[in-house]
C-alpha cells in the first residue's frame, strides 16, 4: 500500500529524517514509535505531502505521490491529529462534513454516512448541532476520527491520536477503536511515543531514533529479537509487562482452551483481581503461569 524509499528531510541544519525506507502492507497497522524529535511525525507528514522530502520517494498504491496535486491526495487519506483540529466555528455535523463537501457529496449522502458513523462511534445524535468547545475530550477525539472516516479512505494517518486525553479515557477509547470494524480493514500509519499504545495498536512497530529506523517488526520481534542495544534498552523499563502482554496464553499453555485474544497478562490480571469476576474455570495458578512463561521465553 505504502512504499517509502530513501526519505531525507532537513530543517535548516538539523536532520529530521535521515534516509529511511519502509513498507506498509494493505490493511496493516504500522506504528511509528520513538521519543520526541526522532522524526516520526515528519515521516508521517511526508506521506500526505504536508512536508515535502528533500529527497526520496513515497508511493501510495504504486503511484508516486508527487504526481498528484497535494489537495487531491490529502482528500483521499484520512488524517487524525493529537489536538483533534476540529474547527471551532463549525458544529460537529459541519466539521465531519468538511471532506465530503470538498469532494462535492450530496447532502443526503453526507447525512446518511454521518448517522452511520455516529452510531458506530457511540456518539449521541444530539451532539451534531453542538460546537466542539461543548464536547468532552473523548467526544472530541471521536468526532475527529469520524471526520477522517467520512469518505471511507483506505489509508489513515494518525498523529498521536490519543495524546491529548487523560489516561483512563485513553485506554477505553483505544479499546473502542481497536474493536471498530471501520478500522479493521484500513491501512493505518500511527505516530506515538507511548510504548503501551504502540504494542496495543500496532501490527508492526517502526522504532525510530534521531531520524533513523532502529528496527521495524512485530511487537514480539522487537521484544524478543532486538536488532541492537538501542532497541533492547528502549523497552527495558516496561519489559516484563510488555512481554506478558505480547505472548498469548495459548502459546504458553497449548492445551488451554483460551481464545486467541487472551494474553498471559490478561490471565494474570484475572488471577490478581478475582473481584472483577472474569476468572475462567481452569486451574492455572500464578506460579504455573510464570514458570511456563520463562520456559516459553527460553525456547
Amino acid at each position: 500500500m505504502i512504499t517509502a524509499q530513501n526519505l531525507i528531510k532537513h530543517f535548516g541544519t538539523a536532520t529530521a529524517v535521515n534516509n529511511i525506507s519502509f513498507e506498509v502492507k494493505e490493511g496493516e497497522n504500522l506504528v511509528l514509535l520513538g521519543t520526541s524529535g526522532c522524526g516520526k511525525t515528519t515521516t508521517l507528514r511526508m506521506i500526505n505531502r504536508l512536508i515535502e522530502p528533500d529527497s526520496g520517494t513515497v508511493f501510495v498504491n504504486g503511484t508516486d505521490i508527487r504526481t498528484q496535486q497535494p489537495e487531491v491526495l490529502r482528500r483521499g487519506i484520512g488524517y487524525v491529529l493529537q489536538n483533534h483540529g476540529l474547527f471551532p466555528h463549525y458544529t460537529v455535523a459541519e466539521n465531519i462534513a468538511i471532506v465530503p463537501r470538498l469532494l462535492k457529496w450530496a447532502d443526503q449522502d453526507i447525512r446518511k454516512r454521518a448517522d452511520e458513523l455516529f452510531q458506530k462511534l457511540n456518539l449521541d445524535a444530539s451532539l451534531a448541532g453542538q460546537y466542539p468547545a461543548a464536547l468532552s475530550g473523548g467526544q472530541q477525539q471521536r468526532v475527529g476520527l469520524a471526520r477522517s472516516l467520512m469518505v471511507n479512505p483506505p489509508l489513515l494517518l494518525m498523529d498521536e491520536p490519543f495524546g491529548a486525553l487523560d489516561n483512563l479515557t485513553r485506554i477505553s477509547i483505544r479499546k473502542e477503536f481497536r474493536a471498530l470494524d471501520e478500522l479493521v480493514k484500513k491501512t493505518i500509519v500511527m505516530v506515538t511515543h507511548d510504548v503501551q499504545e504502540a504494542f496495543e495498536m500496532g501490527d508492526r512497530i517502526c522504532l525510530m531514533d534521531k531520524g533513523e529506523i532502529k528496527q521495524i517488526g512485530t511487537p514480539e520481534e522487537l521484544l524478543f529479537k532486538p536488532a541492537n542495544d538501542f532497541v533492547r534498552g528502549f523497552f527495558d523499563e516496561q519489559r516484563l509487562q510488555l512481554e506478558l502482554r505480547s505472548v498469548l496464553l495459548k502459546e504458553v499453555f497449548p492445551e488451554s482452551d483460551a481464545s486467541s485474544e487472551v494474553s498471559v497478562w490478561d490471565r494474570m490480571d484475572a488471577l490478581l483481581h478475582p473481584e472483577n469476576g472474569n476468572l475462567p474455570a481452569d486451574d492455572i495458578r500464578i506460579g504455573d503461569l510464570m514458570r511456563a512463561f520463562e520456559t516459553y521465553k527460553r525456547k
Binding site: N48, R74, Y79, L81, L86, I98, V99, L102
Partner: peptide
C-alpha cells in the same frame, strides 16, 4: 490555532 490550520490542510483544503 495552528492545529486547526494543520487539520484543514491535512484534509485537503486549498
Amino acid at each position: 490555532n495552528a492545529a486547526v490550520i494543520d487539520a484543514a490542510r491535512g484534509m485537503g483544503m486549498s
